[in-house]
């Protein structure tokens, strides 16, 4: 079947299987910035924005994105330099496998609650696991991004 959506601000169409997950469609079409970690919607590495809300694309059927506006880490960091700068400046990463998901969730928090306090940041970002950092620099990156808005 055919999927048509807006991806990172551009029209996007692909032939997909009815059971294809959005993460697979993105990655097969060279958008490999979106990572697959746990595959069961828990770790958040595959987070993308669908109609301005964060979703775990590893458990999000691609057909559900029909007609939707989808943004991945590639698109968000290229249109919002404050988002990229916050993570680069505060080094909100180590191995980087969770980073695209953290970046997308951070952007989503900026839409939902730009004045979030420390506790609200940690609550919102709890769906994006990181095994490396202990979360201090990631939380600081999010804080820096929200402050820039």
């Amino acid at each position: 079947m055919k999927l048509s959506m807006t991806l990172n601000g551009e029209p996007f169409a692909a032939e997909i299987g009815s059971d294809a997950m959005l993460v697979d469609v993105l990655r097969l079409n060279q958008f490999t910035g979106t990572k697959e970690g746990c595959g069961v919607g828990v770790c958040g590495a595959c987070t993308v924005l669908v109609n301005n809300g964060p979703v775990s694309s590893c458990i999000y059927l691609a057909v559900m994105a029909e007609g939707a506006e989808v943004w991945t880490v590639e698109g968000l960091t290229s249109k919002d330099s404050d988002l990229l700068n916050a993570f680069v400046e505060k080094e909100g990463m180590q191995c980087g496998i969770c980073t695209p998901g953290q970046v997308v969730s951070c952007y989503a928090l900026g839409i939902e609650n730009p004045s979030a306090n420390e506790e609200e940041i940690r609550e919102f970002m709890a769906g994006n696991l990181c095994r490396c950092t202990g979360y201090v620099t990631i939380t600081e990156s999010v804080r820096t991004y929200l402050d820039s808005k």
């Binding site: 880490v73 680069v88 990463m93």
Partner: peptide
């Protein structure tokens, strides 16, 4: 200066084995 890989990781450009 930030990490050598900060920008490529934050933009999703870094290539992991599964991406190749």
């Amino acid at each position: 200066m930030s990490r050598v890989d900060a920008e490529s990781k934050a933009t999703g450009r870094s290539r992991y084995v599964a991406d190749i």
